[in-house]
């Protein structure tokens, strides 16, 4: 839809207002971008330059040393292999957790709307409840559960935790999408001889691609950025990158290496950034999907 055709007032006063509007927008833009700029520029400076220069000055000599150290040799606790192994931990945790919680959420949403059964609404309401529980409340019972399953301190334990607590949101997303899909499609498919899973995989999932993308972004961001579960349910070598980053930054011995801290923080944030850039277009579209007849 284009708004170009809509008639607007003209004149000097209007032009001035418009100018003011853009000036304010640019100002906000700068305020918003400043922290990122400082992070990037600090990470490219040498320690000496950081100590002598000001916070917002740009690096006189661009150096990637801090990045290399953050990635490969910085000390997390007593282990000095950088954050690389912990990035890998996070990937091993986030990929299965996102895939499983998204798939289960899709099946839930589909079953709750298209194969309605007695009590479906109650079950959905109870699942929604899970979206509003502060995670601190479940720390102790969850720790006990993981212990009973023999998953305490492992990446798979973390996968289980994130899958369980992601289900409330993924189910909500998919239910809201499938509720807008015509029941006639499912009825037609039943007459065509398809059952629960063939209808799901062949018809419903392909229709839900925008919702899948939204859910994957949402889950990826939340799970990747999680610190609470990561620090509570893993130890040392199985820490996700968020915990490792904290351990680098919060280290109390030696010189504070701001450039390494900044580089490590940016590295830890890059995967979520990449997911947004790659799928961001879908994210916006998915959130608005079903808002208008289309």
């Amino acid at each position: 839809m284009s708004r170009k055709g809509i008639v607007r007032r003209r004149g000097a006063g209007q032009a001035a207002l418009r100018l003011l509007l853009y000036a304010v927008l640019v100002l906000f833009c700068l305020v918003y971008l400043l922290p990122l700029v400082i992070m990037v520029s600090t990470s490219l400076k040498s320690l000496g330059e950081i100590r002598t220069g000001s916070l917002i000055s740009l690096p006189t000599q661009v150096s990637l040393d801090a990045w290399l150290k953050a990635w490969g040799t910085a000390c997390v606790g007593v282990r000095c292999k950088g954050i690389a192994p912990y990035m890998w931990n996070s990937v091993l945790m986030v990929v299965p957790a996102v895939l499983i919680s998204t798939l289960l959420g899709a099946v839930n949403g589909y079953a709750l709307t298209k194969w309605r059964f007695r009590g479906a609404d109650v079950i959905f309401a109870l699942m929604l409840f899970g979206a509003f529980i502060p995670f601190q409340i479940v720390l102790l019972p969850m720790a006990r559960t993981l212990g009973l399953f023999g998953l305490a301190g492992t990446t798979w334990g973390l996968v289980l935790v994130h899958t369980v607590y992601g289900l409330a949101f993924t189910t909500l997303f998919f239910r809201n999408f499938f509720v807008s899909v015509s029941d006639g499609i499912v009825q037609a498919a039943k007459i065509d001889g398809a059952g629960f899973f063939p209808i799901f995989f062949k018809l419903m999932l392909p229709m839900a691609v925008p919702t899948i993308v939204v859910t994957v972004i949402w889950q990826f961001t939340n799970i990747w950025n999680d610190f609470l579960f990561g620090s509570a349910f893993t130890v040392g070598d199985s820490n996700p990158v968020t915990v490792a980053l904290n351990n680098i930054v919060a280290t109390s011995t030696g010189v504070k290496e701001y450039n390494v801290d900044m580089a490590a923080a940016i590295i830890a944030g890059l995967p979520t950034l990449a997911v947004y850039v790659l799928a961001g277009n879908y994210f916006v579209r998915g959130l608005a999907a079903g808002a208008v007849k289309g």
């Binding site: 015509s182 006639g184 499609i185 009825q187 037609a188 498919a189 018809l203 229709m207």
Partner: peptide
């Protein structure tokens, strides 16, 4: 069906 119910 009234809504055609085609597989989109």
């Amino acid at each position: 069906f009234q809504s055609y119910a085609l597989y989109p």
